[in-house]
Design a protein around this nucleic acid. Sequence first.
DNA 1: CCTCATCCTTAACCTTTGTTGGGAACCGCG
DNA 2: CGCGGTTCCCAACAAAGGTTAAGGATGAGG
Lengths: 243, 243
Amino acid sequence: MDKESIVATLLRRLDAVTGLDEADIAAIRALPIVVRPWEAGRAIVSDGDRPTECCLVIEGFCVRSKTIMNGQRQILSIHISGDIPDLQSLYLHRMDHDLISLVPSRLGFISHAALRAMTRRNPNITEVLWRDTLIDAAMFREWIVNVGQRPAASRLAHIVVELRRRLAITGYTESGAFEMPLTQEQIGETLGITPVHANRIIKQLRDENILDINRGRVRVLNETRLAELAQFDDRYLHQSPSL
Amino acid sequence: MDKESIVATLLRRLDAVTGLDEADIAAIRALPIVVRPWEAGRAIVSDGDRPTECCLVIEGFCVRSKTIMNGQRQILSIHISGDIPDLQSLYLHRMDHDLISLVPSRLGFISHAALRAMTRRNPNITEVLWRDTLIDAAMFREWIVNVGQRPAASRLAHIVVELRRRLAITGYTESGAFEMPLTQEQIGETLGITPVHANRIIKQLRDENILDINRGRVRVLNETRLAELAQFDDRYLHQSPSL
DNA sequence: CCTCATCCTTAACCTTTGTTGGGAACCGCG
DNA sequence: CGCGGTTCCCAACAAAGGTTAAGGATGAGG
């Protein structure tokens, strides 16, 4: 993937259609982005770190997670191509969670210095990036609701629908099936349940012909029943900045 | 409370010690803030609204919450004096949750127009406000972990310790006891459990002489055991901007 | 000081989720 | 092609949390 298409990925993510002018786009294009391949399961930044750069997911999948003292882990978000999962580190200097790749990925690194210089000069870009971190927060809110209020099957349905919706924007989903490279243990960690129970729920949805999840691939079998379960309302994704 | 002390509350919340110069502080002082008393339990902004101003909690308590289709409610955050609970509405134009007062409060309203004009002119203030919304997000992350991974008693201990820590900054806590004006039903909504179970947990902690929660007042009975239960690590609050 | 609404409290029973332990399928590597 | 680790799968039992139903305390307003 060349520099031009990396920038394109980034611009699409930032909903650059509205709000950015020629000069802003030129500034983004001028950002020094260091592209590095990344093996699966390797930490990008860890809890306690003080990163000096932000990470753009060019290709692949990452998750953010927190581990509590007894060793239990909670996955906080799933990141796909175009996301900047640790943009918050620009102003929150010490990491309070981990960021890890799930599969072999390609990551673009942009120094805090370069980003800060850019935002200092471009209020439009500042707004767009700030907005991006606010959407991040909106998704956390929805996840609190998901984990706090919904039964396990609905939780699973909800994150599946959310991920598919996000992948659809960048075109990473063929009809019905898409990639969600989480093991059942990791699915449990995102839903706040044990791996055994995650397996139960996955089996149940498979038996009911709603969803087939297997080794990182999701196939939607019954759109209607899935929607019923997930009770998904996409407003929290704030996909249209004009609204 | 006069204008001067309202601004002082705001500045303390924004950790203005670092990062803001005379001009910035003057700009904040010049903000037009409309103070309005607010009765208990009245919505400040609701899910779906498009607010045109932000709300500063001068005195009192508010919560943010989301209600899902079947009527279940999840409380997302508790807000105290000095907080700007809907700062995110500056760039996320449509509300994806509710903001409601818990007790009779005094609120200060600042128009988006005034805030935007200020941030356009003052990059320092932009950073400080942006940072504030990032801390908001960090707290959401911790709440995902709380609801997803901890047993009910630990969840309760955790939010108690969090709230006390935050109140301590502004001096709203006398030794051991402080205000947390949530009914048991609302505590349930915060922890993702039913009111009956919330009652069970509260009784259990009372019987074990750890915590006495009664009609909006919390008394800490055993600091050590409370800390054990809560497993509280305050790093996610990002209280020191220099770090 | 009485009343009504809200909040707190508890019990009995039921459902969901966790625990333990084991076996089968899959896959990358030698 | 076979081996070893990971992932998936499942059953039996235990524990945490939800449901339903009801009585008692508290406090604001008449």
